[in-house]
Design a protein around this nucleic acid. Structure first.
Lengths: 344, 344
DNA sequence: CTCCTCTTCTGAAACGTTTCAGAAGTGTAG
DNA sequence: CTACACTTCTGAAACGTTTCAGAAGAGGAG
């Protein structure tokens, strides 16, 4: 091509460093040779940045897209990365359930959003070992890494207190995974204490706190741990919980998806919701308001959470040192899936 | 560290090439030095692969997450990439509406899923110039690049024929973007002919074909072109179309989101849907079945579309030459938003 | 003509790997 | 003791850029 590599580089990156004619000539030759501009990997290596941030999620990515709350969270992150002109790399979970650390190590990113991973997930350590700028979301804090999240415990407590105020005394709880490798089934107190997923652990703690301070016994409340956060699991949980004696009059779910499944089963069994049984959710996904009956649930700002996480991460990339954490507000949204307990 | 770089490399990538003790020692030193394993960029450069595939979308990414059809499509792609242990890089659209080619050129990926871009979008050319393995989805075919899609025209035609069979003769159409920079407003025939977005163009063509072959005049059917694929735009379209004389008794939408918006407005104006006005959608997003009334619409397999696109792309990566295209099946799903035309 | 400044371009080094041929050492068979 | 085969490790080159100091030449001021 008869020109130094550095000149080609300048043609693409610093037009002011060479004459317009030569620049045009370089492009012309590039076109003829089928050269599409600097290779991203070579450039990334030299410049020491990848031009993308990664997001690490506890489950398989493809599951995340089936969870409306996750999708909104992604929407927020992508908004932040788009603002900054960065790519968003979705890091694959283990291809066959096995958590491959390879993918985490191999992700060409400048920073990491680590979302909702179990405290003891080996992948979490792998991720932190990379010493990239990172931000934790809905997870226990780690020294030196900013966190974004909500007050899970407080919000759950408020939700349970609301039901107590309606006169309910017999509860059942539907939780998603408490720790890696959820078995699916009733989780006793010790299993609850082992919870390594922050949201499930904290929300149960909130429910427990409300119930104990009402003079009731949390130990008597059956907690069903689902294997995944999906409607079908909520159904399974309700099957079990509604067969208990004494039968609960109120079900506390840790997500709307689970709550929806529970309501389905309750109705199929001939109960009126909220007439006979009240069900409360968590997340306030868009479907919650559309649902019949509309779900009483805890609103949390999913999109904003993603946006905040993205922005905090990006600020770190810019080298603006102080990584601040953020706790976003929640709000109990009373709709139609809860009512005063029926007088016996 | 007292050991050759190649040995470190072997420690991480080829355990069989060195003694277990040395390998352990390497890791030990790595830990102490805070070395987290081979740098993805260096490795990528040398190995000539990035370990990720990119997805390029016509809109801003953050919009995509708000569209259930898009989300399902992503779900499919991510399933495919996850199977292959690859990352999924979401390439940012122009940060401020302006389509920056930088991001496309700068994406460190081994292949590209190019989804639903206008035929004349400069970014499309930029993407193809990279000469990476690619697959086009819901787009006009390009020589040498495999395509994945559905028979938009045939499916739309079937949908319109169904309405004609119900006795409707006065139609209105609600379309999303026909070409880059949609203005929002009635699109005349010449604008329709200019359509560069395959799905909108083909679906309208299908509607037109059905109507013409029923002996009606497509030229008399007002077509409202929305700026974006969202409920609020469907509302605007319906406001306009329902004010036309003669008033349409059936609205043909090119997406469910638009159909839902149209139904809202029709009802607010005191019409019964489907009593007075029939509305048909396209996509069969999950919300379509939940909606009141449930939407009559064209089902297409969104997740499978993403899965197919991903797999075809990944097959090309593996060097398996022949890139085959795929046309996925669709199906008219009759629900409650359509009915026989009211006898005057 | 000399000195200085500008513009335009170049050369070499560096970014962090992997690859591959081969060096060094250790056994084993003949 | 030689020949050969392993095993274990190393050195150099290459991957495709960008950066930075500076060479070469042109033009202007003194």
């Amino acid at each position: 091509m008869g020109v130094a590599p550095s000149t080609v580089s300048n043609a693409y990156n610093r037009p002011d460093q060479l004459s317009p004619e030569l620049r045009e000539r370089v492009f012309e030759v590039a076109r003829r040779l089928g050269y599409a501009g600097p290779d991203p990997l070579g450039r990334g290596l030299r410049r020491r940045r990848a031009g993308a941030v990664g997001v690490l999620y506890t489950d398989r990515l493809s599951y995340a897209f089936a969870d409306p709350a996750a999708v909104m969270f992604f929407e927020g992150i992508s908004q932040a990365t788009e603002e900054a002109g960065l790519g968003l790399l979705l890091i694959p979970g283990g291809s066959l359930g096995s958590r491959e650390p390879e993918a985490v190590r191999n992700a060409a990113v400048d920073g990491l959003v680590i979302w909702c991973m179990a405290e003891d997930d080996p992948l979490l350590e792998t991720a932190l070992e990379r010493r990239l700028p990172a931000v934790l979301v809905d997870q226990p804090p780690v020294e030196g890494v900013p966190s974004v999240g909500i007050d899970d415990e407080g919000a759950a407590r408020a939700a349970a207190e609301y039901l107590i105020g309606l006169g309910h005394t017999r509860f059942g709880a539907v939780s998603f995974e408490l720790a890696l490798g959820a078995r699916g089934g009733i989780a006793d107190l010790s299993r609850q204490r082992e919870a390594t997923f922050l949201p499930s652990g904290s929300r149960l703690k909130g429910y427990a706190a409300a119930i104990e301070s009402a003079g009731l016994s949390w130990a008597d409340v059956p907690v069903y741990e689902c294997k995944e956060n999906k409607v079908s699991e909520g159904r399974v949980a309700a099957e079990v919980l509604l067969s208990k004696t004494p039968q609960p009059t109120a079900l506390l779910a840790t997500s709307d998806l689970l709550a929806i499944g529970a309501i389905e089963v309750a109705r199929e069994r001939g109960f009126s919701v909220p007439g006979d049984i009240s069900v409360i959710g968590f997340d306030d996904i868009p479907e919650a308001a559309q649902h019949i009956p509309p779900l009483t649930t805890v609103y949390q700002p999913h999109v904003e959470k993603g946006l905040a996480a993205g922005r905090i991460l990006i600020a770190q990339l810019g080298g603006e040192g102080v990584a601040h954490s953020e706790v976003l507000p929640t709000r109990l949204v009373v709709r139609g899936s809860t009512a005063e307990v029926k007088r016996a």
